[in-house]
């Protein structure tokens, strides 16, 4: 086991342990030991899964990530109001379009975050993703334009950029 793997496993262990404690809220020795056993068991399973599918996923919990989330929340509020307007307004204002956006410059780990962010923001929806492009369906053409502006893509790229 190399160093990277150890760090990886320790990260998972810590996250899971915190998760357990927050769920449980009990600090009795009995339950704590159960928690410890549980976490160990799950980490073993995680390891087994990684060994079979060769796709370890490390949860990223860095500062840029949280900054990004905050920014994303703002975006969601903004675009939601736009969609709400569309819903209540005349349906003629809809101009659904499908576009492909390049994702080659985004690290592989973060493409999923990017795609999910697109989906999460009302008005845009990622329909497909492959090595080079993410296909986006949008309610209005201007939503696509703001995506093409690349702010979101850059933010996402930055999160993992400083890690690898």
């Amino acid at each position: 086991m190399d160093r990277k793997t150890i760090i990886y496993l320790v990260t998972w262990t810590l996250i899971l342990a915190v998760f357990w404690l927050l769920l449980s809220g009990f600090f009795k020795p009995l339950l704590l030991s159960f928690g410890l056993a549980s976490v160990v068991l799950v980490v073993v399973l995680v390891r087994r899964m990684d060994n079979t599918d060769n796709q370890p996923q490390k949860p990223s919990l860095s500062l840029p990530f949280f900054r990004y989330i905050a920014w994303l929340l703002g975006q969601i509020v903004l675009s939601s109001s736009q969609v709400a307007k569309l819903v209540w307004g005349s349906s003629k204002r809809l101009s659904p379009t499908t576009t492909k956006l390049p994702v080659a410059h985004i690290p592989e780990d973060s493409r999923v975050l990017y795609a999910n962010s697109i989906t999460m923001t009302p008005g845009t929806l990622s329909v497909d993703i492959d090595d080079n492009y993410v296909t986006v369906h949008a309610l209005r053409e201007d939503s696509i334009k703001s995506l093409q502006g690349g702010k979101m893509a850059n933010s996402v790229a930055n999160i993992s950029g400083d890690k690898n």
């Binding site: 969601i76 509020v77 969609v83 809809l94 923001t121 009302p122 929806l125 369906h137 309610l139």
Partner: peptide
């Protein structure tokens, strides 16, 4: 369908 997904994502996210 595709436009309806947008509507659904409003309830899902915001």
């Amino acid at each position: 369908f595709f436009t309806r997904v947008h509507a659904a994502s409003v309830t899902d996210s915001i």
